[in-house]
Write a protein that binds this DNA or RNA. Structure first.
Lengths: 200, 200
DNA sequence: AAAAAAATTGAACCTTGAGTCAAATTTAAT
DNA sequence: ATTAAATTTGACTCAAGGTTCAATTTTTTT
């Protein structure tokens, strides 16, 4: 409840933004575990010691929370994709690195890929789908590069991608921090399985 | 609306069971596409030319539909798993075959794996989770056999399984019969990627 | 064609949970 | 300490959608 006391006159906005972010992250985590519709505004507030009414001070409505949590996840994934590719490595190496970081993102940060896209309506839904597509395209592009540079075997690049992106999404369903398997172990295992699955 | 006219006095039950099954399959398909909570009883009825009230002649409530569609999917998967394993083949070959059939099941029959398990309550939820576990265990067992007979490389067998089962579940999200890729293509592609990913 | 059983419906009921708002409380600034 | 702004709340409204049921229509049986 009590945070580090802010002194300078202008962290107002920051303070607000930070708490808003907390709301969204916390909600996203609940959405991931229980699903969007099985999580009430009351539930979301409770975790943070707030009434559901208080949430509306930070967000316009529930859908906005879902929307923003999607944005957040895809934002992080964009960051990972932006990592500069070392010249030396093959496209496969590059892809493996990206995938490893995706796994880390999902297992170690609070961020989670969400799938209740259908609960978003109109513009928001299509924006999120565009973001997902953009990521899929970027990854597919790398796969194609790999097929060109000889590090990745042929075949429908999109199918290659769907396969291992599926593994990633499914991770969200079963992975639980408290399990015996650590995020690093998963990252290692998964990136090897990815590599073997598509290498030349 | 009009079906083949039944004659014998005893297809009553059959008739009823058949229509009930239709209701469930149709609903399952909608759940898969739009999600459980984004599909109203009205929606479900509409597809079949029924009022939502009529549905209650066939099912006790909405949750029962979700429950039964899960059962149906896992029932089919159990069937696939029951296929006798030819002595000759390695565990990896066997696994590949099973996986291929899983993919076919999801792309070609109306059956779909559903994920709204959290919308089931109490007993039902745990029964479904048990069924899923049972399948996962059976598959994991095959992987372990493969590691023993030398056809599958080492590593945490459960992680091997989660990876490609993820691909399977994700399939449900993006695959659409009307797309350019056929179910067979996917089956071929996926089973190869599975094999390569874990072979010794 | 009448009677019985099966199937379907329209109209209501009821619960849940999202969203609103004026008032109360807490925190920061003077 | 006082004031003002920021934050939170309790009580309420409202709509959506699941569920019920008596009445109606359709189908089957005799």
């Amino acid at each position: 409840m009590v945070e580090l006391a802010p002194k300078s006159p202008f962290d107002r906005e920051k303070q607000f933004a930070a708490k808003r972010r907390k709301v969204i992250l916390s909600a996203a985590s609940a959405f991931r575990r229980r699903g969007y519709h099985n999580t009430s505004m009351r539930d979301i507030g409770e975790v943070l010691g707030l009434t559901k009414a208080a949430l509306y001070y930070y967000v316009k409505n529930k859908e906005e929370i879902l929307f923003e949590s999607h944005l957040m996840a895809y934002g992080e994934m964009d960051e990972i994709l932006k990592m500069s590719q070392t010249e030396a490595q093959s496209a496969l190496d590059y892809l493996e690195l990206i995938f490893r970081n995706f796994v880390k993102l999902l297992t170690q940060s609070g961020v989670s890929i969400l799938s209740d896209v259908d609960s978003l309506s109109g513009e928001r839904q299509s924006e999120i789908l565009k973001r997902r597509q953009r990521i899929e395209r970027a990854v597919t592009k790398i796969v194609k590069q790999g097929q060109a540079d000889g590090s990745i075997r042929g075949g429908d690049a999109r199918l290659h991608v769907f396969f291992f992106m599926g593994a990633l999404n499914w991770l969200n369903v079963w992975y639980d921090n408290k399990g015996r398997v650590t995020g690093d172990e998963i990252a290692n295992h998964f990136s090897l399985q990815l590599r073997r699955g598509i290498e030349e």
